[in-house]
Design a protein around this nucleic acid. Structure first.
Lengths: 251, 251
DNA sequence: CTAAGTAAGTTGGACTGTACAACTAAGCAT
DNA sequence: ATGCTTAGTTGTACAGTCCAACTTACTTAG
């Protein structure tokens, strides 16, 4: 039985009920939330928004993930909904957006049975720096979470997002999406180290990055107080690269 | 704005509407579907059910994934819902159940905007062999899909599940859940090869499996027409193990 | 102009684990 | 006993990381 083939277990239409189509039972609330990561001030940070305190609003004043109800008139699909939420808070389209999972239960929202579709996004620090929504704020990740206690089960979702990010960073090129269009190899390595919270070997890192068909040098150097560094950019339309090994396995 | 903090964009309560709580807008349909894998007859197979042809049923007679609407009175959370669907079709609890992702759009179900939470499950062939529901049937995976054209977007979901399974099998111990409690190393290797559709090196495979803190020998041998093989079992309460490298990287 | 300092980038040997292939071991069939 | 089949081991080659020392290129201080 799939997608409503069920002929038993129909519930009285508490909140739903379109009459006669066999869909006359209560539907859970459906939301989308986005965990937006950036590396700012040498730290992995997450964008959170402070909730209002209107009538009937759960978790007033608490911080929460950017998100909200699926709008079946405006959102063609879940990802479009996530892109909309992301744009509302940052003003930009993220260079990387991935579905994280869904959380649904009778108790996670005091207003009733609800399920959220969680996404996680990576963006360069510069992209989302000034043009934030007024109620949005960046928080550094400590361990696997952020300091403020979050509304709903968003603390758990953030934790899952950090774990997923760390795990994938071990064997993929995801951190490239946390940097602007041009970057040096030491900058890229630093982002890996910030996300993993662990130092990496310079020579192994360079060998791996350069032998992966991932980045290409541009005809410019990053100049600073010492030896200039070669600038690179992601190769065009590069999906994330998967490496055959993880880095320097911890333990 | 999160989980209904939105104060704009409220829709007239087409199907929802609990009056006065700020939730008076249409909700998408919410379902759960499960991609159930087993290795049977030396092939990776997926369990599908044939849809009925009642009034208003979309995709009559088509094959689809086991699943159905979330029942907000019976299902405490999404995973409980998936376990229920799985049990209804196989009669057993799967030793491994993982969330795969969610698919939601205005068009995937002709009855309206709907979102499904997809899970994937692994089970030993023996566990689900005879006690199948009458409308359920196993289909071998060819490439990344099954032969019958599936209802809804279930073809896409099966494809994603196969890709996820193959990908994870490269560096985890997941295939152990496709075998009964006791198994030999050649049997385990064979399951890896069936899932990956690629031969593996015997000695490297054995070295990796035995050095991972994953399985332990039992005091019995599998006897056959030739040399007996040592039987192993998963160590108690073992979560899947992640290896630091993939197998024999293709290409 | 030179020397010191710093970060970029390279080099080479030790180590780990897979790739490949040949080998031994243990059972059954004839 | 001989041969067949599958379980399991051994040994060399190779790839990639680990670690540390090294060279390169630029800035700044004197």
């Amino acid at each position: 039985m799939t997608d409503g083939q069920e002929t038993t277990g129909r519930k009285g239409g508490k909140e739903g009920g379109s009459g006669g189509t066999g869909l006359d039972f209560a539907r859970p609330l459906a939301t989308v939330d986005v965990v937006i990561f950036a590396v700012r001030a040498d730290a992995l940070q997450v964008l959170l928004v402070q909730r209002g305190a209107g009538a009937g609003e759960p978790f007033p004043h608490a911080f929460a993930l950017p998100g909200g109800f699926v709008d079946i008139d405006r959102d063609r699909d879940l990802e479009a909904c996530a892109v909309r939420k992301l744009k509302e808070k940052t003003g930009v389209a993220s260079p990387y957006l991935e579905q994280l999972g869904s959380w649904g239960s009778a108790t996670r929202d005091p207003r009733g049975w609800s399920a959220t579709h969680a996404y996680f996004a990576l963006m360069p620090a510069a992209a989302a720096d000034p043009p934030l929504a007024a109620d949005a704020q960046w928080f550094p990740v400590h361990g696997e979470s952020v300091k403020p206690r979050l509304a709903f089960d968003h603390g758990e979702i953030v934790k899952a997002a950090v774990q997923r990010l760390r795990n994938k960073v071990e064997y993929t090129s995801l951190p490239a999406y946390l940097l602007p269009g041009e970057f040096t190899l030491p900058e890229l390595q630093r982002v890996y180290e910030i996300v993993l919270d662990r130092p990496l070997e310079k020579s192994a890192f360079r060998t791996r990055m350069l032998s992966a068909d991932l980045i290409e040098p541009v005809a410019r150097m990053r100049r600073g107080p010492n030896r200039p560094a070669q600038l690179y950019r992601l190769k065009k339309a590069k999906a994330p690269v998967y490496f055959a090994r993880t880095f320097n396995p911890p333990g």
